[in-house]
Design a protein around this nucleic acid. Sequence first.
DNA 1: TAATGAAGTGGTACCGGTACCGCAAATTGA
DNA 2: TCAATTTGCGGTACCGGTACCACTTCATTA
Lengths: 357, 357
Amino acid sequence: MKGDMTIYGIAKECGVSVSTVSRVLNNNPRVSEKTRAAVMRVIEAHHFSPSGIARAMTNQTTRSIGIMLPDITNPYFSALFLEIQRYTLEHGYSALLFNTLFGGSSHKIGSPFEEMQYFEMLKDKRVDGCIILGGQMDLDHPSEAYVQALNRLNASIPVVAIGQPLEGCDCIFINRDLGGGVAALLQHLAALGNRHIGFIGGQQGVRQTTERLKAYRAALEALGLPLSQRLVRLSNYYLEDGYAGMKALLDDGEKIDAMVAVNDQVAVGAIRAMRDAGLCVPEDISVASCDSFPGGEYQCPRLTGLNQQNEYIGKLAILSLMSAMSGVRETIHIHHSPVLVIRESCGSHLGIRSKSQ
Amino acid sequence: MKGDMTIYGIAKECGVSVSTVSRVLNNNPRVSEKTRAAVMRVIEAHHFSPSGIARAMTNQTTRSIGIMLPDITNPYFSALFLEIQRYTLEHGYSALLFNTLFGGSSHKIGSPFEEMQYFEMLKDKRVDGCIILGGQMDLDHPSEAYVQALNRLNASIPVVAIGQPLEGCDCIFINRDLGGGVAALLQHLAALGNRHIGFIGGQQGVRQTTERLKAYRAALEALGLPLSQRLVRLSNYYLEDGYAGMKALLDDGEKIDAMVAVNDQVAVGAIRAMRDAGLCVPEDISVASCDSFPGGEYQCPRLTGLNQQNEYIGKLAILSLMSAMSGVRETIHIHHSPVLVIRESCGSHLGIRSKSQ
DNA sequence: TAATGAAGTGGTACCGGTACCGCAAATTGA
DNA sequence: TCAATTTGCGGTACCGGTACCACTTCATTA
């Protein structure tokens, strides 16, 4: 800031005290209309903007919150962020965004693992609260150091974590049913006559993947379908991962009727690989996704998959944080089931020939 | 923050003065190793985190910057943001993100037009600088009030604006050649035998659209191809806009060989509409995009279009801002040409039958 | 009429750091 | 040996707001 006005300057110019200027700024009724008008004129003439920093200093609140997520270019996270921001801005809060990019995204920021460093930045900035998702949080077994750091962060500011509750950590957790809906997806696939069903995308050791894989295996068994480790190809969550994984699977000459992709991105990548191999979707292979992203209905073919109602998660997170910041603390378990949206990528009960042998 | 330590508390516990604690915190060499170690022990024992707010108060710098963009769920903007964040975090800056969603995105935040209100928040937060793109900035004719507000913002903190320089505004502008490459795109289309070429997506009155449309018309004329206003369908930048626009065009029964889409999203939406009408891409209609998004090579068909090298813009913006924050100010004009990436959606010179009559 | 209270305003301590100044002790150099 | 410098540390003003207290001036009420 350059030649900056302060309330002292304004006060001097108006011939009143700083208290009065402060009262005008805060719409305190204990100031006469005459004085208020005079002060306002000077304030507006200078385009005076009071320092949020100084206010934060005395008020002990910054009216800003922090959001830590893996990768804002991922449609799942950006949609979630936007939903959060709708509320923050409505309530006069600003949002500090940090991308952690843990786990080998294709777009790496400097060193891949700075989450605990970001915790420190969050503390330094004195945000009023924060929302954390992804990274170590999503691991089947987060490191002890991480849990401790998270606990310390939570000791100074309210933390809402989107993920499964961590042993000995009293953040507020938004605990989703990660494997939910996978059974329905498999049932749908089976009803269409698919027998050899693979699983693609997601990372080893990451809770989301682990849970979905577990649900996938349980469903196959319940359905009496063959289960082969060779049809499970983990790697990551992006287009290129779906493509590479599927290409490898096809090159290996595995017999496949259908693929369950960990999300829409992976599904699109996998479909591309199938097309490159001369296969048609859904005529030759069906593809279904465990996590639909916005826009799946515009793909060719339109993507069948599970709508995880992610906007709902964002809303829940920011609402929990808002109430935590005003004193209420409670961990939320979400029991909502994702809804299966049937479009084209698996064929439909009506339209397509049976592929069972 | 709860039962919070301050440097006074630390000082008292160590039996030293606050000056000494401050020196330890700032790695000032004028403190003995013995004292430093003692102070560090207490600091670590309490997990003391100094207040960035108090530091900002005296230092008159917050080490945070603001980014204002239309919609983080748009892959163009999220990629740009990520590129910016790579630098901010490397240099110890945090980023405040504001979505303006100006111009009727499908995801509207509260009231659609809060840009000038965000300017005030940026000032209040005392960010050290900011990067602004989209919204009024992109209009052919931004309002006088907007330009004034922008000027005032720029008077207190360095502003880097990604867009065409505004009359009487001395922000730093990153001025791109918006219509660049469109001629090459049209040439490619024409060489493939396409004669009736339409334009889809983008908003009336928005600079990007205006420039590209102008380049499109100029190219058609230069190529001696027919130009019909009925083949130009503006609306917005998203999947649904491409779909709706294309559907309307097809329903109107226009004769079309190819479509130029304002970006990949619109292209995907348009392709979906073509498929729904029983048309094949590129066999029946070609589609090319003026702005390729990451992942276009995984679509079916793979998307041909202009790579605007957007990461480069992000890098330039943050670098300009960094230098502006340390005193240097200069507006940058970018003369780089977008590169035409030929994939499948227009066919190729080698592979496809001529469609001219 | 005197006590009571409300309205309007000023004075100032405080929030938690930083940076400058000052001072004693230790070290250096002629 | 004594001045000059360096080292290590403490004291405190300041950044720009807020909030509490005190004080004056009127209007209200017993």
